[in-house]
Simulated assay, not measured.
Amino acid sequence: MPSRTPHRFRRTAALLTALAACVALAGCSSAEPSSSSSSAASGAPSASASSAQGEAVSGSSGSTEPSSTDEPDQPGPAHVSIPSIGIQSTLMELGLNADGTVEVPPAEKGMTAGWYTGASVPGAPGPAVLIGHNDTRFGRAVFHDLKDIREGAEVLVRDGAGKTLRFTVTGKETVSKKAFPTERVYGPTKDSTLRLITCDGEFDAEGHPVDNLIVYGALA
């Protein structure tokens, strides 16, 4: 029986290609309340994000094809922990919003990170993408201290079957939401890799962070 993986790969790639202009993470706080329960990102959350969680801006000049090569029955990630900076969280699944942008965790669940199901399952070839807020209107959020992570730090991801994968941080960068490195974050990788994304930087006139913090990791 042929695998469904190629179809899933093409579908995800097409969605991200069509929406490659909306790639910056909207996982942060804002001074304005919102009734919306989720924000967006295409590749990471986008300009249609709710004001309660921060707002992304478009900024990709090209397309990306995430390496979703996991088998359909492979268990998804259930928990992430970063012992060196005291982060630990269960993981909710994040898909696409009705407008084709990628979800982020709702502001009221700011202490919970999420796994973007359109990218790879941790442990499978390709980038696995975990998204979390820095702050929300409710206060400090799960990835608030992600800026303090150091190269070589360990990130532990446990799947739904109880297996723990160990990733090692290989680098981090702060980027403008207007110049989000789509290919670097979501592009195919031969080995299993990890990306952790949150908001960072100064605030614009509307109270939204202007940058994203991206942490890169590789399976140890």
Rank of each mutant, 00 (worst) to 15 (best):
L94Y: 02
F180T: 08
P188R: 02
G114L: 05
H79W: 12
I149A: 00
V57L: 10
L196I: 14
E93A: 14
F180I: 08
T117L: 09
L213C: 03
S68P: 11
T64F: 13
V185P: 00
V142H: 02
H79N: 10
T12Y: 11
A78D: 05
P83I: 06
T174G: 00
G43M: 06
Q53D: 11
E108D: 14
C199S: 08
V104P: 06
I214E: 11
N97M: 06
E65W: 08
S63G: 15
E65M: 13
V129R: 08
T164P: 01
L156I: 01
H7Q: 15
P125M: 01
G207A: 02
P125N: 06
D159P: 02
S34A: 12
G217N: 04
G201V: 02
G152C: 06
G62I: 06
R184A: 15
E108Q: 11
T12A: 15
P181C: 00
I197C: 05
V155T: 03
G43S: 10
S38A: 13
T174Q: 14
D148Y: 03
G201H: 09
S38P: 07
L96E: 10
L146M: 05
A153N: 04
S37L: 13
A161E: 13
L213G: 04
H208A: 13
S48P: 08
V157R: 03
Q74R: 11
S120E: 03
A113Q: 00
T112K: 11
P72V: 04
A18M: 14
S3Y: 02
P209N: 07
T189L: 03
S29M: 12
R137Y: 13
A161W: 03
L165Y: 12
E183S: 02
P127W: 04
S42K: 09
Q88N: 14
D145W: 04
A56V: 09
K177T: 03
L194M: 06
S63L: 14
A119G: 09
D200E: 10
P66A: 03
H144N: 10
L194C: 12
I82A: 05
L16W: 15
A40E: 13
R150M: 10
E202L: 13
G201A: 07
E183N: 02
V57W: 08
T182R: 06
